[in-house]
């Protein structure tokens, strides 16, 4: 202390130190209190699981901040979309045409995936699930993206319960599976992307109909992709095979949505399953227009794209 400053500086310095003391005395207890409060919150949220007591709080904050995020995204969009500004003029008609095309393309991809080829015609006729991707799509745009620092890969879209959305609905875009809806507010919804490490999707290899589980790698990099583990260790997935979802119309993921193509296959002697790297069809770093699959004929505050491509 005495090393810097002579006698003249002493008075001032001591006063300064006093101030520092008085300023820092209060925070100690406050710091402990706030840290304990944080830990209490963490404990509450962890032990609560699916219906944690913080879910209402999330909802309230979402209701308040969702419209702000939508507004900010709308304000920012003209600048971020400068490259294709001249092409699209941000027109709603263009957007709808885009999604119509996406719906048709998705159906086309599924037909080509070998998934339908292998399925018995009668079985198709018997189950309601055969309406696979024929469900209606609610168009929406991504308005906010969670930071990588938060370690969960989630986005906010500008359609909520007023547009007919609910938890566990499947979200797609014109390339393939994007994710599923976690929770909704009136005007926004939070979507868990399939590349999130917490996300697990039932996947089916198109050519062999083998089933497995696709988990996210936690990276936005398209090449790092997703991990596929097949249930049957005897079957080896082939490179270039298409992976589609399997599931039920009531479950989180609708069946038959294309996820990606297999780029690498690893088989380990110790583990009882094959591991394949799946490159997703969707470019997650450039997500914009998405469609949420809703039951055909559901109520919505915006135009819904029906299974046959018509607008309602």
């Amino acid at each position: 202390m005495a090393a810097w400053g002579g006698h003249d500086g002493r008075e001032r310095r001591w006063k300064g130190l006093d101030r520092l003391e008085s300023r820092n005395r209060a925070p100690r207890s406050l710091l402990v209190a706030l840290v304990l409060a944080s830990i209490t919150l963490i404990t509450l949220d962890v032990s609560g699981g699916g219906d944690s007591p913080l879910e209402p709080a999330r909802r309230v904050v979402g209701e308040a901040l969702g419209p702000a995020e939508s507004a900010a995204a709308t304000a920012v969009r003209p600048f971020t979309a400068v490259p294709d500004w001249f092409r699209s003029k941000g027109d709603l008609a263009e957007e709808v045409r885009e999604l119509e095309a996406s719906n048709a393309e998705l159906r086309g991809q599924v037909e080509l995936a070998g998934f339908d080829r292998n399925r018995l015609e009668q079985y198709d006729g018997l189950t309601a699930a055969a309406a696979d991707l024929g469900s209606a799509l609610v168009p929406a745009r991504v308005v906010a993206m969670g930071p990588r620092q938060s370690q969960s890969l989630t986005v906010t879209i500008d359609a909520g319960s007023a547009a007919g959305l609910g938890p566990d609905m499947t979200v797609v875009n014109d390339d393939g599976l994007v994710g599923r809806v976690l929770r909704v507010t009136r005007s926004t919804a939070t979507v868990l992307l399939v590349i999130d490490p917490d996300s697990t999707v039932g996947g089916r290899v198109g050519s062999s109909m083998e089933i497995g589980f696709v988990t996210g790698s936690g990276s936005l990099d398209q090449e790092t992709g997703l991990d596929l583990r097949l249930v049957d260790d005897a079957s080896v997935p082939a490179r270039g095979d298409t992976v589609v979802t399997w599931g039920s119309t009531t479950g989180p993921y609708a069946p038959g949505v294309p996820i990606g193509t297999i780029t690498d296959v690893y088989s380990s002697l110790r583990e009882a399953s094959q591991r394949a790297v799946v490159k997703p069809f969707v470019d997650f770093s450039a997500l914009d227009v998405v469609g949420v699959m809703v039951p055909s004929g559901s109520e919505s505050d915006r135009a819904v794209i029906e299974a046959d491509g018509s607008l309602r």
Binding site: L41, A57, G62, G66, E69, S150, S152, T185
Partner: peptide, 27 residues
């Protein structure tokens, strides 16, 4: 500043795209 830090963290924890365990950013 401390209370503001806690509040800002709480908002980060609860605002829409977030899906991690709440309270982590607050801490």
């Amino acid at each position: 500043a401390l209370v503001l830090g806690f509040t800002a963290g709480l908002v980060l924890d609860l605002a829409p795209p977030a899906d991690h365990v709440a309270g982590r950013w607050a801490l």
